[in-house]
Write a protein that binds this DNA or RNA. Structure first.
Lengths: 133, 133
DNA sequence: ATCGCATTTGATAACCGTTATCATTACGCG
DNA sequence: CGCGTAATGATAACGGTTATCAAATGCGAT
């Protein structure tokens, strides 16, 4: 484990992730890769995603029903998401103020190594209209 | 299913939830009830918690490792939590500013019916000290 | 108070996503 | 080219949640 090797599988996962706009589940990504003809294994997808998340190249969050969702992450900066609970549309939101608030609040209470979960679930304009009829 | 019946089990779950300060996992709550001498079943705890969450008497969130956590929801006001990822210590934090920010951000993007998840996970002072030696 | 019946309960099995296992493959360096 | 070792992948194990279904129980009607 001393050195990370460059395998085509890892690249495939990275690319597949980049090519998607919203969040994808590990299984979804795996399915997509298989459909595209790749013989990549499920376990490998999980490992690759976990690695990407560790290095900071991907963001992960838990969907309301317990799945882990991943998303290619603009390398710099940490941002949050506004997610349509109906169609899955995802909007990135910069939240500098919230960042600061979170850090501040955590240290006010003596907490260290603070990570925060800040995500907003709602109905996007389109789905709101569709639901209103 | 037309009418909800009042069973002692449902009450037991509600009270057990009220008596706890932070978030509890369904299994944790079940364990606690069993320890307290109750013969309540695991499935029932899950059902009761889901019901409470539906009615709005409880809030639920997903822990980073995929468990569903529940907490009694103070009827008035909505607040967030600072949770020690090691010992589970939970501190309630008022977040008026964040509330407002979330609502604003959502509507800025045309989203409606916005709920937000805002929680901070970290290491509390005690656990930080313990981990540092 | 009692009856009747539909809802709820509870032990367990099924489910689903994730992680571990371990023999096999193949990257990377000399 | 060849070796050592990390990565892969099929599958089993795992843990939390949900479904199943017979038995128990609340609740309105009597």
């Amino acid at each position: 484990m001393a050195v990370k090797r460059n395998t085509w599988q890892r690249e495939a996962v990275r690319e597949a992730l980049d090519s998607r706009d919203g969040f994808v589940s590990a299984q979804g990504l795996h399915q997509g890769l298989r459909d595209a003809g790749s013989h990549i294994g499920l376990a490998t997808v999980y490992r690759a995603l976990a690695d990407l998340a560790n290095v900071g190249e991907a963001d992960s969050l838990q969907s309301p029903d317990g799945e882990s969702l991943y998303r290619a992450c603009a390398s710099t900066g940490h941002h949050h998401h506004l997610i349509c609970r109906n169609c899955g549309l995802t909007v990135e939101i910069a939240a500098t103020e919230v960042e600061q608030w979170a850090r501040q609040t955590a240290s006010d209470h003596g907490f260290t190594d603070a990570r925060h979960i800040v995500d907003i679930f709602g109905l996007c304009a389109a789905c709101t209209a569709a639901a209103a009829h």
